[in-house]
Amino acid sequence: MSSSVATMTAAEIAALRERFPEALSVDRRRRWTHRAVAAGIVAYMAFCVWVFDITVERLFGGLGKMWIVVRSMLVWKDMASWDYLGIFQGLAETLGMAFLGTFVASLFAVVIGFAAARNVVPNRIIHHLVRRFLDLLRGVDTLIWALVFVRAVGLGPLAGVLSIMVSDTGTLSKLYSEAVENVDRKPIEGVRSTGAGNLKVYRFGYLPQVLPVFLSTSLYWFESNTRSATILGIVGAGGIGMQLSERMKVQYWDQACFIIVLILLTVAIIDTGSKWIRLNLIGRREL
């Protein structure tokens, strides 16, 4: 028996292949499936490039015009005359919209998330109905909800809060329910073995396991909503987005740039803050 890879003889390899056919023989069908999938992806990409008429000239021509915009963004003029009050008010409004929307959506999601988890509600019909309802909330983008709510309750932050709330209830419930479905069964059995009823089992068997996931998910979505609340402003749902879109319409690129920098800073601060919160509420181990 050869003791090194280099000295393995053909006879030895053949004998081993005979004994372990699944592990050693090449699965031709699988290999060809892989190749076919790869070819399909490449073909689809090429098709898209062709349909959208993406050409090198158009890409580089566009870059030239981009440069003009970038340059006027970097030169800040007449800074004394800028409407700082409006800008910071808009920023505060956006933060408030994102916070309120995410917070209320999280509260709904705790309940719906449990209801949508297969291990909590084993009834397949209910499970299905809840899931499809969540798909509806989620499948319609926040932006579409914003347009709907602007019509319903008028321009301003309320429409923004409602649209974030509705679409995030869908997203967060789904993410929460997946966390609930992935819990470790052992502690749950442990709690049940003490004679606790269902609700008590949820409270002490499930909740401690899923709470860190719930919290970090919601914190992430708060941050993400701060970003997307910017877009909501553009369709009239209040906040910094309204300020931004007004300035871009009249080509005040320098002020637009200032607002973008403020948004980036805000998001960075939220990110740092939520890291701190996670560290202190969840503990270092889960991170």
């Binding site: 890879v5 280099a6 393995m8 030895e12 390899i13 081993l16 292949r17 004994r19 372990f20 699944e22 592990a23 050693l24």
Partner: peptide, 23 residues
Amino acid sequence: FTPAERAFAIRALDRLDIAQAAL
């Protein structure tokens, strides 16, 4: 990986009595 390497791997697993779990 070469056939020799795969064969060597499965033999090593077999000697340790876990070749049946190879996949």
